[in-house]
């Protein structure tokens, strides 16, 4: 079964600052101790922003809205179609979303403060899954049995 520590190791950019894409373009190249990343909004068309996004070392998605899954498709497009090779981070993550976050192709995550007390593997409930995904490490995929 996948362990949280496996994904934590991928968090390369510890100290970060996030900007929406327009602001990020303006600030690009300015000296800073922080790693500048782009924060994607639900309305951003990831595919059409490919050239700029591929220049950023870190791209973040905000998962604070418990009931909104738009970011999962944006992450998919960023990784598969844009071919982004940098770090994709999920911020404001609810622990109940962790299993989806892990599998969607996100590299690192920041839990919302209220979940800090949980055991790190709390959100990992499954050892099996039904479909291929960007990251199924530790999971037995049913469709491969066919």
């Amino acid at each position: 079964m996948l362990k949280v520590k496996d994904i934590e190791k991928k968090q390369k950019n510890k100290n970060r600052t996030l900007r929406y894409i327009e602001q990020w373009i303006l600030e690009k190249g300015k000296a800073s101790d922080l790693i500048n990343g782009i924060l994607i909004r639900p309305t951003d068309d990831v595919e059409s922003l490919a050239v700029t996004l591929n220049q950023a070392p870190l791209i973040a998605f905000d998962f604070n809205n418990f009931d909104d899954g738009i970011s999962y498709s944006q992450v998919k497009i960023l990784r598969k179609r844009v071919g982004y090779k940098g770090e994709i981070r999920a911020i404001n993550v609810h622990i109940d979303h962790l299993q989806f976050i892990f599998r969607s192709g996100v590299d690192s995550y920041e839990l919302l403060p209220q979940y800090k007390k949980y055991n790190e593997d709390y959100g990992i409930d499954f050892s099996v899954c039904y479909q291929a995904a960007e990251n199924n490490v530790g999971l037995l995929e049913k469709h491969r049995i066919y």
Binding site: G69, Y72, F100, Y130, Q131, E134
Partner: peptide
């Protein structure tokens, strides 16, 4: 049914 059960991309439509 199987493919879209707890699908990582499409569980929060």
């Amino acid at each position: 049914r199987q493919w879209f059960t707890v699908h990582p991309e499409f569980s929060w439509l």
